[in-house]
Design a protein around this nucleic acid. Sequence first.
DNA 1: CTTATACCCACCGCGCTGGTAGGATTTCGC
DNA 2: GCGAAATCCTACCAGCGCGGTGGGTATAAG
Lengths: 156, 156
Amino acid sequence: MFFTTKAEYGVRLLIELGRQPQDQPVSLKAIADAEGLPLAYLERIVALLKRADLVESKRGAHGGYHLARLPEHIAMDEVVLALEGSLAPMECFVDDRNDDGRVLCSHHDDSGRGCATKLLWTRVQVGVLKTLAHTTLAELVDFQTRQLHPKTPTPA
Amino acid sequence: MFFTTKAEYGVRLLIELGRQPQDQPVSLKAIADAEGLPLAYLERIVALLKRADLVESKRGAHGGYHLARLPEHIAMDEVVLALEGSLAPMECFVDDRNDDGRVLCSHHDDSGRGCATKLLWTRVQVGVLKTLAHTTLAELVDFQTRQLHPKTPTPA
DNA sequence: CTTATACCCACCGCGCTGGTAGGATTTCGC
DNA sequence: GCGAAATCCTACCAGCGCGGTGGGTATAAG
C-alpha cells in the first residue's frame, strides 16, 4: 500500500473545503458527517494541514476551517508531503529533504554495494512527486463536481 | 514508506544474479553473504521470483538460482509486482488486476462521493508502473558495475 | 453562562513486516 | 550408498505503525 488513509482523508477534507464558499469557515463536524469519517481522527489530520499552511482555522462557536489559498494554487505534492511526512520509497531514504520534497538514500558511502537499487527508487520517487505536483486541488474539486452532476460533459 | 524490503532484497538478488555468468547456478548462501542479507528470509523472497518465472532453480548440491531470461528482458514492473503482490496506492484499490498490472478502485458505485481522490491515486499508480516498466535489470546491473569500477565514464 | 468549536495528548487493538527455527527433499562428489 | 550442499516448505514470533477512541482544555459567539 502506497499511501495511508491520512492522505486519503486529508485530500477528501481539502476537496470538501474547496467545494464550499471560501468566506466562512466549515466545521470539522460538518465534513466528518458529509464524508462519513471519524471526527476525532480528522482532527489530527487537519492539524497536519494547518501546520503546513494549507488551511486556516477559526476557533470558538461558528468556527471551523477554510483553505489558506485558492484551490488552483494548492498542488498535491505539498498536500501529500504534509500528510504522510515524507515520500521515501524505501527505508534507506532518510529525510534529508530538498526544496522539492525529494529525499535521498543514506547509503551514499557504501561504494554502491548494497544500494544499486538507489537508481530505481529515485526514479520512482521523482516520478511520483512530478505526478503529484501536476495535480491541483482545483482539478480534483472539478472532477468530483462533474461526477455528482454529469450534466455538463467534460470540456476536453 | 513505498516499498518493503522484499522489493529491495529481491531486486538486489536479481542484480547479483545478473552480474554472474548465466550458465551455472548461484547458491542463495553466496548471495546472502555478498549482500549481507539473512539467508532464511531470502529463501522466501526468491520463491516469489520463481513463482513469477523470473528465476529458475536447480536443486541439490552445487545447485542454486539463475535468471530465467536475459537481464535486458526483465523489466522492473514485473519484478516489483511479483515481490510486493500488488501496487495499489490505497486500500480501496482492489486486486482486480489488468494485463498491465493496474489495479482499480472498488468504490465505482459510490456516485463519486468519498472517492474523488480516485483520479489522483490512479495517476500516481500509472506513473509508477510506467517508471518501473521502463527500467530493466540490465540497466541496474550496469549502474552498479560502473559504481564499483568507475574507470569507464558513463557513455552518454 | 452556555454552547460550539478548535486544540491537545495519552492510550489501544490489530495486522503486517522482517526475521527465525526446524525439518523434508533433492542432487552431487566420493 | 553416504554425507554434504543446496532448494523447498511451514509454523512461529516480536515489534511497530496505522486507524481509531476518549477525555480534557482553551476560545469565541450568542
